[in-house]
């Protein structure tokens, strides 16, 4: 099985993606992450206005089998939370880079070490061997 890793995104080694657009960014979990987790049944996301350091835990996604902490690829303040995902958690599985996005942040500067699509694809391939 091969996983989608869109070239316009950057990635954390803990399987979150970030789409940076000026001084704001959208964050979600990768196709590989949603597949590894299985059917997502709960997503715990922060309140709008919460601020986080780069790499900080900002929420949790839960499937029947496992919990997965969610880490923020860049420092910032949460300016929007995807309410659709709380109501319809399978969006994370069916459209992880689109309707399954998790939070939007206003960037405050710091970034965690980010991978480009090629480096992240190589990481996923090395996990799958």
């Amino acid at each position: 099985m091969s996983f989608k890793t869109p070239a316009n995104l950057q990635y954390l080694s803990s399987h979150e993606w970030i789409l940076i657009d000026g001084d704001t960014a959208t964050v979600g979990i990768t196709d590989y992450a949603q597949d590894a987790l299985g059917d997502v049944v709960y997503v715990d996301l922060p309140e709008v206005g919460t601020t986080f350091a780069a790499g900080a835990e900002f929420g949790v996604a839960e499937s029947v089998k496992a919990s997965s902490e969610l880490y923020l690829p860049a420092a910032g303040e949460v300016i929007a939370v995807n309410g659709d995902v709380s109501q319809q958690t399978d969006l994370v599985n069916t459209d992880p880079y689109g309707k399954g996005w998790l939070v939007r942040i206003k960037l405050s500067g710091d970034k965690a070490p980010l991978l480009d699509a090629a480096a992240y694809t190589a990481l996923v391939d090395s996990i799958k061997h």
């Binding site: 299985g38 059917d39 049944v41 499937s63 029947v64 089998k65």
Partner: peptide, 9 residues
């Protein structure tokens, strides 16, 4: 095998 299509299904 932990799952084929999904645990809930």
């Amino acid at each position: 095998p932990v799952q084929y299509t999904g645990i809930i299904d």
